[in-house]
């Protein structure tokens, strides 16, 4: 385990240094900042037009939305290799080279790309989470903070699971991976509206199939006291872990069926 961690760190270091070779690397950080300012802006625009919906203020939605994109950003930062895998490794046949090395496959793929500017998104997300929590007068008790940390950990695992899952499926489909947007961008759209008003079918899909409401809405409702049982807030981490395990299963199946494609 420790050895794997060292390999991961080494890969990340090399990727980081090669990224700094580009003249515009600082522009990349600036760009992600523009993009991350854009994310919450969409929520703010909607609320500036339509106002609050019952007890649902802009701060509540911003909290949920920021939790979602912090979790997504963490997954994207630390598992960039998996999110690029279908495009950069399968079709070109580069995966063959990875298979030849006597080191953990999982670590090599996950750290095959690392972009420091991706960390701008979780950073921005954390700032918005704290701002909304203060605005919502949430008590920063030990239990509440733990629920929040577990929720972000569960969210990270869920989005990491999405990337691993897509890489596993890519072994069979090689191309056409647009469906992944349903699990990434669309799952973030779902938390842009007050959850109780979502149609039931959508609510069930995003609880039982892709657990975005479990990792975002339940913990947020628990610490913000928006109704519902408090214990549901603790479900985030187990749900995220389960989704990640499912992604890993697909990845394993994919690897064992791998037939080289490139030359």
């Amino acid at each position: 385990m420790l050895k794997e961690f060292r390999v991961y760190r080494q890969f990340v270091r090399i990727n980081l240094l090669s990224g700094l070779e580009y003249k515009g690397w600082w522009l990349m950080i600036f760009q992600v900042l523009v993009a991350t300012v854009g994310d919450p802006l969409a929520v703010i625009l909607v609320f500036s037009r339509f106002g609050n919906i019952g007890a649902w203020s802009m701060e509540r939605i911003l909290l949920m939305y920021a939790m979602a994109f912090t979790a997504y950003g963490l997954g994207e930062t630390l598992f960039r290799g998996f999110s690029y895998f279908p495009y950069r490794m399968i079709r070109s046949g580069d995966f063959d080279r990875v298979l030849l090395r006597p080191k953990s496959l999982f670590v090599q793929v996950s750290a095959s790309f690392f972009h420091i500017h991706r960390a701008a998104r979780p950073f921005m997300g954390l700032c918005i989470i704290i701002w909304s929590l203060v605005r919502l007068d949430v008590q920063f008790t030990f239990v509440n903070v733990m629920v929040l940390i577990f929720a972000l950990a569960g969210g990270f695992l869920t989005y990491a699971g999405v990337f691993v899952l897509s890489s596993g499926v890519a072994f069979f489909t090689i191309n056409a991976l647009d469906w992944i947007h349903v699990l990434t961008s669309a799952s973030r759209e779902v938390v842009r509206v007050p959850t109780p008003y979502l149609p039931q079918a959508l609510r069930h899909i995003f609880i039982f199939v892709m657990p975005v409401l479990v990792i975002i809405y339940f913990p947020a409702a628990a610490i913000g006291d928006w109704g519902g049982a408090y214990w549901r807030g603790w479900l985030a981490l187990p749900a995220g872990a389960a989704f990640f395990a499912a992604g890993m299963l697909f990845w394993r199946i994919g690897v064992s069926h791998y037939k080289s494609t490139g030359s």
Binding site: G19, G24, L27, M28, A35
Partner: peptide, 12 residues
């Protein structure tokens, strides 16, 4: 040599 930065920014 500028990398993807400038294009990404225009795009966003």
């Amino acid at each position: 040599t500028w990398g993807e930065g400038p294009t990404y920014m225009l795009e966003s």
